[in-house]
Write a protein that binds this DNA or RNA. Structure first.
Length: 365
DNA sequence: AACGAGGCCAACCGCCAGGGC
DNA sequence: TGCCCTGGCGGTTGGCCTCGT
């Protein structure tokens, strides 16, 4: 059944390449080009099959191979492209000069996939898992309701701060719920716990079902309604030659509610009272803040690529800056409004909240 | 120091598509 | 039209390395 592996024929060598073999292959290709891979081993004096030679050249010997670990920008690119293309490693590799499909595939399987899973994201769909998400919301509601229990108890300063934040978040969410309840969403609302946060559930719905390529025929066209958000947003560090393909472009082509792909970001927990200026992204940022406050492991929310502050209305950016300054006192990095991070990858993957025990802060009440 | 578990990654395997005959 | 060859791709494997016990 089926052909035998080519290397098994004629006793061809398998396994790791020696430096001598590398040199033979390299010299031959530099002099003659690879031509037919099938005939190359014989012409080059190698006891290998053509496939093996091709793989060795593409993944290791090619002169334009980039060595070393992937940069945060490259990670960002991979995540974005994977959300769009799936496991099309070769297609992804074409957007990352010097990186091979094999390398990207390995990096995905050993790093990115695990991180996404750990944070409650589906590595296949790049969507937040709704079960985990609703769980966090339940925690928020429960936390808000704690006020009744807590009112009669003395609280230390930090506990009071958390309590205040939680109440503010709950109030904000209720307000946002009203803002975002379109007729369509209202039709799907009900009176259960989840509907209390329909702002979030609706958004989650969008994020879980929206496929920009399938559902948006104008995916590659610039939406005038979102040009505002694209201004000043940094593009990929790596050139993306095809079709002016950039996250920036993608971002600008969708309104924020439907924006995809979705990537996680973290957000500081301090909130503000400028709810009347709320946008969907702000809503999401706040919900994320809730997660952060609650200390859940899934502190991030899907957001668009690029610097988060560029998304945030000034009020939230300022709030973030305030928290940054506060954090600076306790020894953490940052301390400026622009310190949200140079890339979401840094925010996402280096966020200590990722490693925090669920609900740890609350249990101290 | 020894051992096992888990991570990482180069390399292989099997399948598929496209081109030539 | 169908077969064969070849290149290319995604999934998987296995050996090496690191880390924890």
């Amino acid at each position: 059944m089926g052909r035998s592996p080519c290397c098994e024929r004629n006793g061809l060598k398998k396994g790791p390449w020696s430096s001598e073999e590398d040199k033979k292959l390299l010299d031959f290709i530099q002099q003659h080009g690879h031509g037919s891979w099938i005939s190359l081993p014989k012409r080059a004096g190698l006891n290998r099959c053509g496939k093996s030679c091709r793989l060795r050249w593409i993944n290791y010997l090619r002169p334009d191979i980039k060595r070393g670990s992937l940069s945060p920008e490259e990670e960002q690119t991979i995540l974005y492209l994977h959300s769009e293309l799936g496991n099309k490693w070769s297609a992804i590799a074409t957007r990352l000069p010097g990186r091979t499909d094999n390398e990207i595939k390995n990096y995905w399987n050993t790093h990115l996939k695990k991180k996404l899973i750990r944070m409650g994201f589906d590595p296949v769909t790049h969507r937040r898992r709704t079960d985990v998400f609703s769980s966090s919301l339940s925690q928020l509601i429960a936390l808000a309701n704690l006020s009744k229990l807590i009112d009669s108890r003395p609280l230390d300063e930090s506990a009071l701060g958390l309590h205040s934040d939680a109440l503010q978040l709950a109030n904000s969410l209720q307000y946002l719920q009203g803002l975002l309840q379109s007729p369509a969403s209202a039709a799907t609302s009900n009176n259960n716990l989840f509907s209390q946060t329909s702002c979030v559930s609706e958004t989650t719905h969008d994020y879980n079902t929206y496929d920009p390529i399938k559902e948006d025929p104008d995916f590659h066209s610039l939406s005038s309604t979102t040009k505002l958000f694209s201004q000043g947003i940094t593009s990929f560090s790596q050139p993306l030659p095809d079709n002016n393909f950039t996250a920036h472009h993608h971002l600008a082509s969708n309104n924020l509610t439907n924006t995809s792909p979705l990537v996680p970001f973290s957000f500081q927990t301090s909130l503000n009272n400028h709810v009347e200026r709320t946008t969907t992204s702000q809503c999401l940022s706040m919900v994320n803040g809730v997660d952060h406050l609650l200390g859940t492991t899934d502190s991030a929310l899907w957001c668009d690529y690029d610097d988060l502050d560029l998304f945030l209305p000034p009020s939230l950016a300022e709030a973030s800056a305030v928290r940054d300054r506060r954090d600076t006192k306790s020894g953490s990095s940052g301390g400026s409004a622009s310190s949200s991070s140079s890339s979401w990858g840094e925010i996402f993957f280096e966020d200590p909240v990722v490693h925090r025990e669920p609900f740890s802060s609350l249990t101290k009440f």
